[in-house]
Every structure is written in C-alpha cells, then in structure tokens.
C-alpha cells in the first residue's frame, strides 16, 4: 500500500496534478461504496477520501450532511467503514484517506482507531474539527503507526498560522478554498490563487485544494493556479445518491474521467 506522500511525490515527479475524489461511506449503501471506490480508482482518481458518516458534521454543507444522515439511518457504523476499507483497499491503486470528525475517533480511543485504520489499509487522515492546537493527541501516534494526517489551511488563516500548519501537515496540505462548508460553488474565487502563493512561500509540501470544486473547468483553474491536488466531494456524493446504484456508478465514472481529463491535457 502506497503512502500518501509517496503517491504525491510520484505525481509531482511526473508534473501531474492529483485528483482526489471524496465519497461518504454507506450512501446509498456499503456495497455501492465499495464499487464506487473501484470505479474511481480505475477512472483517474489518484487518492480517494472516504468520509465516515457522523451525526453532527459541522464543516459539511447540505449534500454531504444528507449523505451522512442517510448512511447513519441505515445503521452504518465506524467498524463497517473500516471493514469496507480492509476488503477494498487491496484492490486499489489509490491510497485511501479517511475523513472523519473527532468524536468517533475519541470514542473508540485514538490509538485503537489509528491502528485499526492502518491495518485496514487507510494511509491518510483528515479530521476537519481538529485544528492544529488540538492535533497533538493524534499527530504523534499517527506518525508512529504510519498514517499521515493532513491539516487544513483556511482563507482566514493568518500567515504565522499557515506556516505552523504547513510544518506539521503530513502527506499534503489541504487548502480550503472558501470561507464556508463543503458544497458545490459556481465559482472558485481568485483568492485561492493568492492563498496558494502564500502557502507556497512557506512550504515545499504538496498542496491540495478542496471545498466547492464541482466542475472540470474549476479543477483545471485550480491546477493552473499551482495546486498539486484537487479535491472534489459534494459533486461526487450527489451523483452517487441519484438514481439506481448502477446508473449512479456510471455517472461517477463519467464525471471522474472528465475531471481527470481536465487535469491532463496541458
């Protein structure tokens, strides 16, 4: 299983911008999630973020909130998500990054969670409600266990914070492109370009841009502004939730390929 860093480095060596789709585990059901991971893997995803459904997703907009609520309604549990990763990850090229809020981790026990996640095959972790100040309890054990923890930088982050976050981030730095929650936006503000330049001036680590990107043209725009990775979430989650699973999977495949193409033909 490749680490997130190795994957990002290999792409950078080939001067390629990574595509990182996000889907919510268990929506519409775990079986479809498993198939979606494989579809994404063969349709151009370089890494995949898998969201653990949570009852109070503060950083998420309506699309991902609704997906998480549906998954929980169906009884999807953290252990189910980890079992799914264990089953599917050996068949994938793309490393899996788990995206989960803090309370399910805390509830399970931090080291227990990290160990189990690693054994299941996850290689990265994003915890949207753990800012740098609260991250100590996770960073050290994660480093020992072999899970890379991506930290987020926001448009509101001042320069000294950006520097501290960049220093501590592992795998890549997640640049939040908007002040706001996850969800599709019609435009990606040019502020992202300035933020990318600010970040680049303090770090050599790869930078992924996410929140709001929902169109191939936006992905391309962000790549041209200098991003090393583009993260697309709600646009995938929405497609997966529409229609019968086989139709949804086709839509996901088509969309993933179109995003990948926008990041390739230079």
């Amino acid at each position: 299983m490749k680490s997130v860093s190795d994957c990002m480095t290999a792409l950078r060596d080939r001067a390629q911008c990574a595509l990182i789709p996000f889907i919510t585990a268990g929506d519409p059901d775990l079986d479809t999630t498993a198939k979606a991971l494989q579809v994404l893997d063969r349709s151009g995803a370089d890494l995949i973020e898998l969201g653990v459904p949570y009852s109070d997703p503060l950083a998420d907009g309506p699309v991902i909130q609704a997906a998480a609520a549906r998954a929980l309604q169906k009884g999807v549990r953290l252990e189910d998500v980890l079992d799914l990763v264990q089953t599917v990850s050996p068949t994938l090229q793309a490393p899996i990054i788990l995206f989960t809020y803090y309370n399910p981790i805390l509830n399970r026990g931090i080291e227990n969670f990290l160990t189990r996640a690693y054994e299941a095959g996850a290689r990265g972790l994003v915890v949207p409600d753990l800012p740098l100040e609260e991250m100590d309890s996770v960073l050290q054990p994660a480093a020992e266990i072999g899970i890379e923890v991506t930290l987020l930088v926001a448009p509101t982050s001042p320069k000294d914070r950006i520097q501290a976050i960049a220093q501590n981030a592992q795998g890549f730095i997640y640049l939040v492109s908007v002040t706001g929650v996850t969800g599709m936006r019609s435009q990606i503000g040019s502020r992202v370009q300035d933020l990318l330049m600010d970040l680049r001036s303090v770090t050599d680590k790869p930078i992924g841009v996410g929140f709001g990107i929902s169109e191939p043209s936006q992905a391309r725009q962000v790549m041209e502004w200098g991003a090393d990775a583009v993260i697309v979430g709600s646009a995938f989650v929405k497609r997966l939730a529409e229609g019968e699973p086989h139709q949804a999977l086709e839509a996901v495949e088509t969309f993933c390929r179109s995003l990948k193409a926008s990041l390739e033909d230079a």
Partner: peptide, 20 residues
C-alpha cells in the same frame, strides 16, 4: 491558554474559525 478546565473545553472547530 487552550481554553481548558482540566481536560474539558478546548477549540474543536474547523480551521476557518480559529482566527475569529
């Protein structure tokens, strides 16, 4: 300094809110 009463409290929020 982190807003803790013993182990309780803290700032478990998205990065966007930390400066505010």
């Amino acid at each position: 300094a982190l807003g803790r009463y013993g182990k309780f409290g803290g700032k478990y929020v998205p990065e966007t809110l930390m400066p505010a």
